[in-house]
């Protein structure tokens, strides 16, 4: 019963967060001084190089208002917006590639970002924690010191610098990997998977390298602290094998904050990969956001922002639901 209440509570707060996110995304652009319709008409006119008659102009305004969902009162606009977004996942048409719907772009970009970032974040997290645990547990050994130096050296480098260095070395000087991502559309065959992997090596590497540094450092600090706990001493005095102490005692306890960190970084992957995707022209959400921002494609921008909100909220929800599995002290309350 307590478990049921806990889960219902988490879901309620999840939907509240999503709702607030939706609402802010709706009202924020309407508070901006620029009007997308006027802007569009202005662009149209300057491109065409001729003026429209007032009648045509009014007609166009009305049509655009309808398409953009900008007709009627603010309340009816809001309700229409909620209905479209929640029930149909319809973020409206893209302004830049009118009238293609925004959702189509997002659906195409999403697998790229998710594939690249979920994989790299998980790889960096797993390897970083395995190394960090060993470095913290055997903190006197030479290998531990080396690993810590590696962590300290990697962690402060911004990942776009790592990306640039990798492009320079492996893409330009050695020409082992491509400079930018080029993948031809077509069905997902085994050969295409290989092309995708080949093109993803450098962007993946730059994210892993930097994430690794942070994970090593934090896990090392955590396991070094937990090593001094009374239960670790007692386990040693019991004659528990060193491996068991490292994994079940030091590792298990140090992992709890790291799981929180993993979930939060999974939620932040959309914004996190922005520069990587731009640098490698990787066709994911980051590139989409950037293109939308530079071309004034509001619908596209809001669509991507909403998906990001959805992702962060979902990651937090998942954390809340699974955390008690890792830490029995959390009660379903």
């Amino acid at each position: 019963m307590a478990l049921f209440q806990y889960i219902v509570g988490r879901f309620v707060s999840y939907f509240v967060v999503l709702f607030i996110g939706l609402t802010i995304t709706f009202f924020l652009p309407r508070l901006m001084p620029s009007d997308p319709i006027e802007q569009y008409i202005f662009e149209l006119q300057s491109q065409a190089g001729q003026t429209m008659s007032p009648d045509e102009m009014a007609n166009l305004r009305e049509t655009l208002s309808q398409i953009y969902g900008l007709d009627g009162s603010l309340v009816s606009q809001y309700l229409g917006y909620l209905e479209r977004v929640i029930l149909h996942f319809d973020f409206g048409p893209s302004f830049a590639s009118f009238p293609a719907p925004v959702i189509g772009f997002i659906v195409r970009a999403l697998p790229w970002t998710l594939g690249l970032l979920v994989t790299t974040t998980l790889i960096a997290w797993t390897i970083g924690n395995l190394i960090g645990l060993r470095a913290g547990y055997h903190h006197n050994s030479r290998a531990a010191t080396v690993m810590e130096v590696v962590g300290v050296a990697l962690y402060p480098i911004p990942y776009y610098i790592v990306a640039l260095v990798l492009i320079m070395v492996f893409g330009y000087l050695l020409s082992i990997f491509p400079l930018t991502t080029t993948i031809r559309p077509g069905p997902l065959t085994f050969a295409k998977m290989r092309v995708i992997l080949y093109n993803s090596v450098l962007p993946a590497l730059s994210i892993i390298v930097v994430g690794l540094g942070w994970n090593i450092l934090s896990m090392k600090a955590l396991s070094f602290a937990h090593k001094e706990e009374g239960y670790v001493t007692f386990a040693r005095l019991k004659g528990t094998p060193s491996r068991t102490i490292m994994n079940s005692y030091v590792g298990r306890n140090s992992l709890l904050p790291q799981i929180t960190g993993l979930t939060l970084s999974l939620g932040a992957i959309f914004s996190g990969a922005l520069l990587i995707e731009i640098l490698f022209s990787y066709p994911g959400m980051g590139l989409l956001m950037r293109t939308a921002a530079s071309s004034g494609d509001y619908n596209m921008l809001y669509g991507t922002i909403l998906v990001t909100i959805f992702a962060v909220a979902t990651a937090t929800l998942v954390l809340d639901l699974i955390y008690p599995v890792f830490d029995p002290r959390i009660r379903y309350r």
């Binding site: 001493t233 386990a235 298990r252 306890n253």
Partner: peptide, 8 residues
């Protein structure tokens, strides 16, 4: 309290 591993 501190001699038992809290998560096992």
């Amino acid at each position: 309290m501190s001699s038992l591993n809290p998560v096992i």
